[in-house]
């Protein structure tokens, strides 16, 4: 019986810590067994799985950063993005496959931050896999109730005369923040602007 089993560590390009190897945990064995049984039954193929892993590598916060940088320099794109964020993402090659995307614009009056208290929904196509802290019960529990304290833990202080607006994505919408363009960036290219945009800025726990 053929199988596609390999043992090696996967190193993501943004991780700081090597996690302990859980490849042989009971749960990993269950996961691998399920995948292999489904392949045996022809539900999908090993090649299908590999294709999905390749697609995974195309999803990172550089996608969201590219959208925001484009919106900063191109007023028409900004308008299109605010009117239909998923369609605007698709024009840059980021296909959210029917999942509605909503970009929320930070302004002088409003600072937005996103969470999914019930599970940890996240705009993976535009931001890549969510950070562990985003999925933590601590973040999900506290950011709806005391967002300013949570932001302060990330080093972010929002002035008392600005509204902090928390978005709990309880349904199918996925949210991404459009941070305010920093001062003194008028001369920068779109690519240079994109490099200023951080994942935490796109989630809303940081300003740029």
């Amino acid at each position: 019986m053929s199988h596609d089993d390999h043992h090696h560590h996967h190193h993501s390009d943004h991780d700081a810590i090597e996690a302990p190897d859980t490849s042989n945990s009971d749960t990993a064995l269950l996961a691998d067994a399920l995948r292999l049984v489904l392949i045996d039954k022809g539900v999908f193929s090993a090649h299908d799985v590999q294709d999905q892993l390749s697609l995974m590598d195309t999803r990172s916060d550089r996608n969201g950063a590219a959208m925001v940088a484009r919106a900063w320099v191109d007023a028409d794109y900004r308008a299109a993005m605010m009117a239909d964020s998923a369609a605007a993402a698709k024009t840059l090659g980021y296909d959210t496959k029917g999942t509605p995307l909503v970009v929320l614009e930070n302004t002088n009056d409003v600072h937005n931050v996103i969470v999914c208290t019930l599970c940890s929904c996240y705009p993976v196509t535009l931001l890549g896999p969510s950070p562990e802290w985003y999925k933590s019960k601590a973040y999900r529990a506290r950011v709806v109730r005391d967002p300013r304290s949570v932001l302060r833990e990330f080093g972010t202080d929002i002035a008392a005369d600005r509204e902090v607006r928390v978005h709990d994505s309880t349904a199918d919408m996925r949210y991404m923040i459009m941070p305010q363009r920093p001062e003194g960036t008028a001369g920068l290219s779109e690519a240079e602007l994109a490099s200023l945009i951080t994942r935490n800025g796109l989630i809303g726990v940081a300003e740029l």
Binding site: H9, I17, E18, S23
Partner: peptide
């Protein structure tokens, strides 16, 4: 803390 995902 944040970490990389394993292959499984």
């Amino acid at each position: 803390e944040d970490g990389a995902y394993q292959l499984w």
